[in-house]
């Protein structure tokens, strides 16, 4: 017997299809109005290649640098109860909800030469404004909630009794963290790292305020659109989307392959 589909399911299906179309149509339109030759031509431009490379490595550097502190923070949030925990959780989500241009303005004040951080940077010959280090900070600022939240979910899913068992087997708290908690939460952490990296790469608003130059690809796309129009902005957009997709599909595939037998029984 064929199961009957109710009207409500049909309506949901229709609405869902509309949402999918809403996402796919503009992208498909852009891809269809760009020829492979145009994309190839764009890929040969040094300015484009440099900007894509800059975008990838600044986002990667920001992700890795901040993960050193973000992952332990996620562990604390998952395991400990402390006063004002809800406020701390709210603060972590703040970069997601504030306008990113405003975040850029805030960051500019934080890293400019007059600031403490700026002066510390100047002391070692580093000026964050207009520098890849400043770009990495801006990218990390807007994308770090994704890593913290994913890692916190991962640590929450690790049964506390496994950590307790490790302690009774003579392990110090540090050894428990590195041999039990971290490996068992690793899938979520990698997922968070990939999300943070991806979100960092696509950031425009905060980065453009802190560093118009050197130009990351989202800024380059904006500049080409402003200076030459839609036609000239399309090929670099398509190229950047293709590279981003290839990168994230590859990373996700690698994470899945590495997972192996480390599935946590929950």
């Amino acid at each position: 017997m064929i199961p009957r589909t109710s009207y409500i399911q049909l309506i949901f299906l229709l609405l869902g299809a509309l949402v999918l179309l809403f996402i796919v149509a503009p992208l498909a339109g852009m891809f269809l109005s760009t020829t492979p030759a145009q994309v190839f031509e764009t890929a040969r431009e040094a300015e484009v290649r440099d900007s894509i490379w800059l975008t990838i490595y600044t986002s990667l550097a920001g992700t890795l640098f901040f993960s050193v502190a973000a992952i332990p923070l996620a562990y604390l949030l998952a395991r400990k109860q402390f006063p004002l925990k809800r406020i701390v959780t709210g603060i972590i989500d703040l970069p997601v909800v504030i306008p990113h241009s405003a975040a850029g303005i805030a960051l500019l004040g934080f890293v400019s030469r007059d600031s403490v951080l700026g002066q510390m940077g100047s002391a070692v010959g580093l000026n964050f404004v207009g520098h890849p280090a400043g770009i990495a900070i801006a990218m990390a600022f807007v994308s770090i909630p994704y890593l913290i939240n994913a890692a916190r979910d991962g640590f929450s899913g690790v049964p506390v009794r496994l950590e307790k068992a490790a302690r009774t087997l003579g392990a110090s708290p540090q050894r428990v963290f590195f041999t039990i908690s971290l490996p068992l939460a690793w899938r979520n952490i990698v997922s968070g790292l990939i999300l943070m990296f991806a979100r960092g790469m696509s950031e425009f608003g905060a980065v453009i305020v802190v560093a118009y130059h050197p130009m990351i690809t989202p800024v380059l796309i904006y500049e080409r659109f402003g200076a030459f129009g839609l036609k000239y902005a399309r090929p670099v957009s398509v190229l950047f989307i293709l590279i981003s997709l290839a990168l994230f599909i590859g990373l996700r595939w690698m994470a899945k392959e590495k997972k192996g037998g480390s599935e946590v029984a929950r």
């Binding site: 496994l162 490996p183 480390s262």
Partner: peptide
């Protein structure tokens, strides 16, 4: 970790990401 009391949990609490051998060897570190 310094007490000489070995606790076996009700639901075993065997580490799911380690082999049986690695589990048994855990405290020899």
């Amino acid at each position: 970790q310094d007490r000489k009391a070995g606790l076996v949990f009700q639901d075993h609490a065997v580490f799911p990401h380690m082999t049986v051998g690695e589990n048994i060897a855990y405290s020899l570190h």
